[in-house]
Simulated scan of single mutants.
Amino acid sequence: MAKFNKKKTDGVPPISTASLPDIIFMLLFFFMTVTQSKDGEIKVVNDVPTANQVQKLDKKDPVIYVYAGEPLARYQDKFGKNAKLQINDVFVDVDKVGTPILKYREGLQERYKEIFITSLKIDKHTKMGIIGDLKEKLREINALKINYITKEGTPSILSD
């Protein structure tokens, strides 16, 4: 007569790692689609003034950013200490501001061309002469929707 012995299980069976590469690639694709790349580097001092009535822009609005202020210390040897305008990682003279803004507007879909916004992020120590010239140039190229970027807080006329 044959004896039937029951096999004894020696612990838990090993975990299958066959699906591990699939999980890693799913995570990789997820982070690639969700992560936003950095738009650019701000090359000017940008301590914006405070305001008590601040309104956020809708993220769907097409916006081009113009930065104004004194160049950072590492750029002062090349560009000096006077206030400069920066658009898309490039310093731009006031009289040549129209070119990158018009190029941006031409790249937009037709429905956004009339509603795009020029957003000005201006250092609070920047002289108004350069800002007045900038606004005049924006009028010339018909970029009439302007937004000033500030930080929320109590404005003080006598503050630095």
Score class of each variant (00 low, 15 high):
residue 124 K to S: 12
residue 150 T to Y: 14
residue 91 F to R: 09
residue 127 K to Q: 10
residue 41 E to I: 15
residue 42 I to Y: 07
residue 155 P to K: 04
residue 154 T to N: 13
residue 49 P to L: 12
residue 61 D to H: 06
residue 22 D to H: 14
residue 138 L to N: 12
residue 43 K to F: 03
residue 69 G to P: 00
residue 71 P to C: 08
residue 41 E to P: 03
residue 119 S to I: 10
residue 61 D to P: 05
residue 53 Q to K: 04
residue 26 M to Q: 06
residue 46 N to L: 02
residue 143 A to I: 04
residue 132 G to K: 15
residue 16 S to T: 14
residue 64 I to W: 01
residue 31 F to A: 06
residue 59 K to A: 15
residue 136 E to M: 03
residue 158 L to C: 08
residue 105 R to L: 06
residue 155 P to E: 04
residue 118 T to S: 09
residue 2 A to G: 07
residue 131 I to P: 04
residue 73 A to W: 02
residue 87 I to M: 00
residue 8 K to M: 07
residue 120 L to M: 12
residue 52 N to M: 07
residue 53 Q to L: 06
residue 107 G to C: 01
residue 136 E to K: 02
residue 76 Q to R: 13
residue 64 I to P: 01
residue 102 L to R: 01
residue 36 Q to D: 09
residue 49 P to D: 03
residue 14 P to F: 05
residue 119 S to L: 14
residue 140 E to M: 12
residue 146 I to N: 06
residue 123 D to I: 02
residue 31 F to M: 07
residue 40 G to Q: 10
residue 156 S to L: 05
residue 61 D to A: 11
residue 41 E to Y: 14
residue 112 Y to S: 05
residue 6 K to M: 07
residue 106 E to G: 03
residue 156 S to W: 08
residue 123 D to C: 08
residue 136 E to R: 04
residue 45 V to G: 00
residue 135 K to G: 08
residue 51 A to T: 04
residue 129 G to Q: 02
residue 40 G to W: 09
residue 22 D to L: 14
residue 60 K to Y: 05
residue 151 K to C: 00
residue 83 A to G: 04
residue 57 L to D: 12
residue 94 V to R: 00
residue 90 V to T: 15
residue 131 I to E: 05
residue 32 M to Q: 00
residue 12 V to R: 15
residue 134 L to V: 09
residue 142 N to G: 01
residue 52 N to D: 15
residue 148 Y to I: 06
residue 3 K to M: 11
residue 127 K to E: 05
residue 35 T to A: 11
residue 77 D to L: 05
residue 113 K to F: 04
residue 153 G to C: 00
residue 113 K to T: 07
residue 145 K to F: 15
residue 127 K to V: 09
residue 85 L to R: 08
residue 74 R to A: 13
residue 138 L to I: 10
residue 41 E to T: 15
residue 20 L to E: 01
residue 131 I to T: 01
residue 14 P to D: 02
residue 63 V to D: 03
residue 92 V to R: 08
